[in-house]
Design a protein around this nucleic acid. Structure first.
Length: 573
RNA sequence: GCGCCUGUAGCUCAGCUGGAUAGAGCAACUGCCUUCUAAGCAGUGGGUCGGGAGUUCGAAUCUUCCCAGGCGCGCCA
């Protein structure tokens, strides 16, 4: 109805106020006395054409009054146009929700092929609660955009090629050799998951001479002082000591980490279409160069240069970045940035119209250089979009929990799922806008008390299910609703239901799924209030049927929206 | 120092492409369970929308300057 109304106003303006195409809004006012819909077009247009807003409004009223879904139109306040809809318009919403709520979702005119990349956490440790937030957000965005009609592909970029992988592998070797926490290098990964990998390796292959050498290496007194230099030195030595086993342990470690990450995500309802391996970008095939090489060949020639020591620089400042960036180190190894450029080129070459990357907010400084590289590769940087997700602080017993992967001291995602449950966890992640800092209060999420908003909506859904079971009218025919039989206080529920398409559109357009949760809470509140005021099952039969049809629409709105957010609505509590 | 994000009720947050009296939940206080699930409902109190200036018919929303907090500013990923 909003969309229809907007069309009417817009075409009237196009006809009668040529050259004044304006952006205006049709919204649903808080106060029902201001109509079911309200339009601010006259205020904006009056400014342009230098007329009184009232005069303009009076003209805009005319075409609206002719619409059969509109009952009454008023000009109010400084020049708002308040629109009152017919009963049928509302009843139609209830009917459509009950038939098939997805028909209320307006499909995009031009469906796009969109690749959404998210989580992409280094496979050097288990996922923690921060990754969970990005994961749930990305997954939900994918679901929303799919429903809008876009073609969505999801991807996890696996950083399996860099120094971090060597540190991971070295850490496993230290544990294989029985190095304990006292002697363990500060820059290594200490977590118990490393011990588990070491144990898996130890089950079938233990070479005691290697173990001896590693122990000797660790106690060697002339190791570099600096933590980072020391770990790099140790890695170099370990590669010599372990020879061919190095690669095998590395593979085992990577595989174990990916298994664990995959398990955590899938228990969160998050699955990826593709796990993209960074290292494949560096592997030439028999017939072609590596994707990395091909990327370098595709960059504009003016956009890179080689310095005296042999580093290859990408001149991202040509595109507004603060600094130029090294693409290839003097020893020939690509930087992280370098392979990432190759990855993005690969994405674009696969024919995606839009790339959406969901990154932790600490990566915001990285946006410009990737956008720059995309331009240099000859693509339009507007195809590349980044949604930043802010950190999630974990609150337990009223205080923040600090997290660090290296020390092995963190609150893992799997622990969160165990304690809070998938659905409540997803709910709380989505309860706040993704690009805002958030405190995730674990105690609140698990509490069965009234302070937990998750159960508020669930309870509403369960109550309706219970009513339906008792009334035995769950399948009341669609379309037989008559507004006369509906008590006034139930009408406000119908009004709220009519907002659904608008809210859903906003959530998709702005990539803000939290709007849907806030909407459900408002909708549920109206139901709970109504439930307390009316003894539904004792109402006269016609009234009861009418009410239950509206409540069925509420129930379907909750369960559909929840399922879109990856949450299962409870039938009973 | 530069960049991004944030500052709205005691707490957690909506609202931010400017719009009609600033919202919700929790907490506090007062009521409502012999009646469809009280994980609920009704009501009361609580605000210089961090501060100043500006833009205009109109600002929590836009601009600018301050103040406070988070994050980033690697040939780490």
């Amino acid at each position: 109805m909003i969309i229809e109304t907007k069309k009417v106003v817009k075409s009237f303006i196009d006809e009668n106020f040529k050259d004044h195409s304006i952006e205006f809004e049709v919204t649903i006012p808080e106060d029902i006395s201001k109509g079911n819909l309200t339009c601010n077009a006259a205020l904006i247009l009056a400014n342009r054409v230098k007329l009184q807003p009232h005069e303009v409004a009076e003209q805009l009223v005319k075409p609206l009054e002719k619409q059969d879904f509109i009952n009454k139109v008023e000009v109010a306040g400084p020049g708002f146009i308040n629109i009152f809809l017919t009963d049928d318009a509302f009843l139609n919403v209830v009917k459509e929700i009950r038939e098939d709520i997805t028909q209320l979702i307006t499909q995009v005119e031009k469906p796009e092929k969109i690749l959404i990349e998210f989580v992409s956490s280094n496979p050097t440790g288990p996922l923690h609660v921060g990754h969970g937030r990005g994961g749930v957000y990305g997954d939900t965005i994918a679901r929303l955009l799919r429903l809008k009609g876009h073609k969505i592909h999801t991807e996890y970029y696996v950083n399996d090629a860099g120094r971090q992988m060597d540190i991971l592998t070295a850490s496993v070797w230290f544990r294989i050799a029985g190095i304990d926490d006292n002697e363990f290098p500060a820059s290594g990964y200490k977590g118990t998951y490393i011990k588990n990998i070491a144990t898996r390796w130890g089950d079938n292959n233990v070479d005691s001479s290697i173990v001896d050498e590693i122990q000797k290496l660790i106690s060697f007194k002339d190791l570099p002082e600096d933590d980072e230099e020391r770990i790099d030195f140790l890695i170099e030595q370990l590669k010599l000591i372990t020879e061919s086993s190095w690669g095998a342990v590395k593979n085992l470690a990577l595989e174990s980490m990916l298994d664990s990450i995959q398990d955590d995500l899938s228990s969160f309802g998050i699955n990826f279409d593709l796990w993209f391996s960074e290292s494949t970008l560096l592997e030439p095939s028999l017939t072609t160069k590596s994707k990395f090489q091909l990327m370098k060949d595709s960059l504009k020639e003016d956009d890179f240069e080689i310095d005296a020591s042999g580093n290859v620089w990408f001149l991202s400042t040509n595109y507004g970045d603060d600094k130029d960036r090294v693409l290839i180190r003097d020893d020939g190894r690509p930087t992280y940035f370098g392979t990432d450029v190759a990855y993005h080129l690969d994405k674009l070459q696969r024919g995606f119209d839009t790339l959406i990357n969901i990154w932790g907010s600490d990566h915001h400084g990285y946006i410009k250089r990737i956008a720059a590289s995309i331009q240099s590769l000859g693509y339009d940087s507007s195809q590349f979009k980044v949604q930043l997700v802010q950190f999630a602080n974990l609150i337990k017993d009223g205080s923040k929990i600090k997290m660090s992967t290296r020390s092995g001291n963190f609150y893992s995602l799997s622990k969160l799922i165990d304690e809070v449950g998938k659905d409540a966890a997803r709910f709380f992640y989505l309860f706040k806008q993704a690009d805002q800092h958030m405190d995730f209060d674990v105690d609140m999420a698990v509490s069965n008390s009234k302070e937990n908003p998750f159960y508020y909506i669930q309870y509403g859904h369960a109550r309706i299910c219970s009513l339906q079971a008792k009334a035995n009218l769950a399948n009341t025919e669609v379309g037989s609703l008559n507004l006369e039989h509906l008590p006034n206080s139930c009408l406000s529920i119908v009004h709220e239901l009519s907002k659904f398409p608008m809210i859903f559109d906003q959530a998709c357009h702005k990539l803000t799924p939290h709007l849907l949760i806030f909407y459900l809470r408002d909708l549920t509140a109206l139901f709970h209030r109504f439930y307390n005021e009316h003894n539904i099952l004792d109402a006269p039969n016609e009234e009861k049927i009418a009410i239950l049809q509206v409540l069925d629409a509420v129930k379907k709105t909750i369960s559909f929206t929840f399922s879109t957010l990856g949450i299962k609505a409870l039938e009973s509590m």
